[in-house]
Computed example of a mutant assay.
Amino acid sequence: MEYKDYYKIMGVARDASQDDIKRAYRKLARKYHPDVSKEPQAEARFKELGEAYEVLKDPEKRVAYDQLGTNWKANQEFRPPPDWNAGFEFSERGFGGGDASQYSDFFESLFGRSFRSGYDAYGGAAGNASGGRGRGGASFHAPGEDHYAKIMIDLEDSYTGATRTITLQVPEVDVQGHVSTREHRLNVAIPRGIRPKQYIRLAGQGAPGRGQGKRGDLYLEIEFRQHSHYRVDGSDVYLDLPVAPWEAALGATVKVPTPEGIVELKIPAESATGRKLRLKGRGIPGKTPGDFYVVLRIVPPPANDEAAKAFYRGMAEQFKSFNPRARLGVQT
């Protein structure tokens, strides 16, 4: 997937005001409109302009796009980092608006989904998340919009529960029409057992209402930071465990780290790389807790001196009839 430089497509500087962007789009849209343009590939250029304008005209999409940084070049191979939009507070209307299907794969990878509103930390209904006009078209007293943000937490926070101070960046447009952000600091209780893609609802932390309308709510989508040891699949947690060849061949009892502390694990004799050993109920906590899986990875000692090399030569002689590639139909 190719990176798209929307500023270059629009012919504007990265610090252009919203009015500058609007003027640039109108000028280029007239030039490349397929009904009147004589320019080569006018239709493709017009579509590309529409995509760039969809992002840059909207302060929320623009701020999110800008977080990708300035090091990317047009047409460069691109994959969005999983946490690229973490820590930014958006309205669902602003971030998820637009029909992603009419734009490029690049646009869809960034903005092709909207936040799931109306769910609490455990996927249950959390009340009506819509704002807008009341019955009969009245709008003087209207609830504020709900806001959404993705936050990154540690896997261990889900095991124990925690209280964390987070700082969200809220997109705003200043009086000169330039996009900026302000900080929104919050103390957030992380529920024990929360999982990725679930939400924490903070009542009254969204946009202000109109008149006497209540403030909207803020929904925090949970993602786990990448861990140095563990990986998560649903409610299950996996650890790749290095073991010595003799531990795998003869069996052993070894110490294994888990998010809840060190446990002793019995490795059966004649184990091979890739064997999974399950610790039932030691995954992410919950009404039905996940499991913790240990995946064995056999690690041979290095042959970095003459004694070690001699040992390996003796092993080769001892097991000269052993063919590790027999299943592949390859002879030694």
Rank of each mutant, 00 (worst) to 15 (best):
F107E: 02
D58V: 04
E306N: 11
S114F: 10
R282P: 03
R93C: 08
I267N: 00
R182P: 02
R275Y: 11
L296T: 02
Y159R: 00
D291C: 06
G112C: 06
K309W: 11
G136E: 10
N187Y: 03
Y199M: 14
A272K: 15
H184R: 12
G177H: 05
A16K: 04
I284C: 05
D233M: 10
F115H: 10
I21S: 09
G286H: 07
G314W: 13
V175C: 03
R62P: 07
E247Y: 01
G131C: 01
T181Y: 05
G193T: 10
A86I: 06
Q76K: 11
A203I: 08
G144L: 08
E92K: 12
S109P: 08
Q67G: 12
F46P: 04
R45V: 13
D120R: 05
S180L: 13
R62A: 10
I262G: 03
P289I: 06
G204E: 09
A252Y: 09
G11L: 04
A316K: 14
Y32G: 07
A16F: 01
A272P: 02
F46Q: 02
Y230V: 00
S321Y: 08
A207R: 15
L202P: 08
L296N: 02
D83V: 02
L186P: 03
A162W: 03
V170S: 07
N75C: 03
E54L: 14
T160W: 12
L56T: 02
Q205G: 03
A189R: 14
D20R: 08
R164Q: 14
A310D: 12
G177Q: 08
G281L: 07
P82F: 08
